[in-house]
Structures are given as structure tokens and as C-alpha cells.
Design a binder for these strands. Structure first.
Lengths: 181, 181
DNA sequence: ACCTGAACACCGTTCAAGT
DNA sequence: ACCTGAACACCGTTCAAGT
């Protein structure tokens, strides 16, 4: 709050005239970020529409690395709801109804949220030694972590975050396709 | 810190002899929770094994509603790594390798993380008026939220969190099945 | 209507000092 | 080896007061 006020070139307590509590500021900030998420043009390919929204969603969070830290609060702002409406209407158009529609919406949303949270966590961990230390710990115990050692978990992987995220998203969409048959 | 010390029946600054910083305590707490996640008996059905681990994972987080708030930090404790090893070895046994293996691991992990985070967020929001207020906002604007109104989003749904979570998990597993063909 | 400074209760953390 | 109290810098927030 004090730093925000300073950033605004204003007295430390002035902010409290415009906002009742710090939580309010955080709520507003979170919803504001969602306003940056582009709503794709509705096409006749629902998978493409969903993919576009989810990728934009993730991109917005990655642009503001502290944003996922705000995710532990109810997301009820108009911008969030507009994105949820777009996602759910896309899925409804695909043929989902009832529980299936709710599950599909939650599934995709929770996947982006989890991904963005873990990605920004690593991105914010400035000290690469933390990661390297953990990697070394893994390599020191090849009997307890045989698979992690072999797969290069936490190592300097050949594949990037984008590739992993897209892979998981495609998996989810393939599963949704399956449910529609 | 002060409250932790009081809880331990000890002077306010005593904790700092056992731990160097508050972050340390949170790291230890997070990894401790993962220690509660039961590792399923390895069976010949990899889907069942994965399902068991993921459900236990989620249950542990829901048991400690503040746990997801700790997720914004690197998960490198031995308990976390042991669960990751189990999950990844299960997926490797299923036939995944290379990027596919990494993507499958990340996909499932990020889905639980996101789900646990949003679920505990709602569970911790003691005031039901927050949710009801948002629901009312949706119903007041049926033109902007046609799908959300129809689906009862944020309403008192007929289906519970467990059902939605299982649905999303099954979707992901179905997608993974697809990738193995 | 909007901004201010003083003040309060509360943090995490340091450090010299005790046993 | 383990614990203590005093102290520091820093929070979010209130409130009476200014314009």
C-alpha cells in the first residue's frame, strides 16, 4: 500500500479514500489482468477457439509473473466472468451439457491456472542454484529417483515450457473429443 | 513467526535458531503435507495407479486449506520428489517417453494443483454472500452471460467438487490413452 | 470531493546476552 | 546447544484534520 501510494506520487494513506482495503486492490489487479486476455473470433472450429482463449489466458499470466500469486482469491470480476462465458459457450457449442459442461470448463480452467502458477514460480526463482541443487539431489539418489534421473527432470531440458503446456492442452482436448463420441 | 513461537510455547525469536527464515518454515510445511500423500501399491493398471496418486494428492491439499497458497514456491522437498517419481514412473510404464512423458507428468500435476487451488479458495471464502453476489451479477446480465446463466455457474449446483474433479481427471487420462495408440 | 500526517497494532528479523 | 528480550525497519489501517 505504502509503495503503491509512493508509485502514484501521493501520500501514504491517500489510497484508502479510493479503496477500502488491500484485498480490494489485489482483486482489481487480478481482474484487470484478465481484461488483457484476447477473446478469439468465434469460428466453426471449437477446438481452435478454446485453444486460442487458453493460450491467451496463459500468456497474460506469464506477462505478470506475480499474477498467479493472486489466484488464491475468488475470481469474480467482470473480465474473468467474460472469459469464463466465452470458454463455456465454446464448449456448449461443441456439444457439452450439464455436468460434462461444468467438468470440461473446470478442467481447462484449472489446467491453465496450475500451469501458470508453476511456470511463474520457476520464472521468479531468480537463483538457478535452487533448481540445480534439486537436480543434483536427484542425481545423487538414482535408486530412489530412477525415472526422474532418466527423464532429466529439473535438468536443462531440451523442450521448453510452451511445448509442455501445449502438449498437456492437446491431451485434454483429445480427452474432451473422446467424451463427445 | 510470532504466532508459531507462541504455539510452541517458546519465546518469539527462538524459532530463528532452528530455522533461518520464514520461507524455510513454509517450504518445510509444504513438503510435510506431501508426505501425507499415500503412494498406491503398484498394480498392472497404470491408470488406476495414477488415479490413486492424484486423488491422494488432492485430498492432502484439501485437508490443509492453506496449502495451495504455498504452491507459489519451488516444490523440491524429498516428499514432493518422491510423488513426482511415482507419477512419472507410472506414466513411463504406460509407454510414455521423452517430451511426451514430461508433458504428461506436467499435465496431471498442474491439473491437481490448479484444482486444489481453486477448490480451497472457495472453501476458505467463508462468506457465502460473495459467491451469491457474483451469481446474482451473472443473472442480472443474461445477455452478456447467456451460457453461465443457463449452466448455473457459481450457483448451488447439483454436482459437487469431487465429481467435477474426477471428470476432469478422466478426461485427461482419456487423452493420454489416445496418445498411446 | 480529495488528500494529509500522526498514530496504532502488528510484522519478520537481528543481536547481544543469558544458561 | 538452546533460549531470551530489547530493538529495528517495515507493514496495513484509522482518524481527525486540512483544502
Amino acid at each position: 500500500m505504502r509503495r503503491l501510494a509512493e508509485h502514484l506520487g501521493v501520500g501514504a494513506t491517500t489510497v484508502y479514500w479510493h479503496v477500502t482495503t488491500k484485498e480490494d486492490v489485489l482483486d482489481l489487479a487480478l481482474d484487470h489482468i484478465f481484461g488483457e486476455v484476447a477473446l478469439p473470433q468465434v469460428s466453426e472450429d471449437w477446438r481452435a477457439d478454446a485453444r486460442g482463449l487458453i493460450h491467451g489466458w496463459r500468456a497474460a499470466m506469464l506477462r505478470h509473473p506475480w499474477a498467479p500469486g493472486l489466484l488464491g482469491r475468488p475470481m469474480l470480476g467482470p473480465n474473468v466472468l467474460a472469459r469464463t462465458e466465452f470458454l463455456q459457450s465454446t464448449l456448449a457449442r461443441a456439444g457439452f451439457t450439464g455436468v460434462g459442461l461444468a467438468a470440461a470448463t473446470h478442467g481447462l480452467a484449472n489446467y491453465v491456472i496450475g500451469s501458470a502458477l508453476t511456470e511463474t514460480t520457476w520464472r521468479r526463482t531468480d537463483d538457478p542454484d535452487v533448481r540445480h541443487g534439486a537436480r543434483r539431489h536427484i542425481e545423487d539418489s538414482p535408486t530412489t529417483y530412477p525415472t526422474l534421473v532418466a527423464s532429466g527432470h529439473l535438468g536443462d531440458q531440451a523442450w521448453g515450457d510452451d511445448e509442455l503446456f501445449t502438449g498437456g492442452l492437446d491431451t485434454m482436448l483429445a480427452g474432451l473429443d473422446q467424451a463427445l463420441r
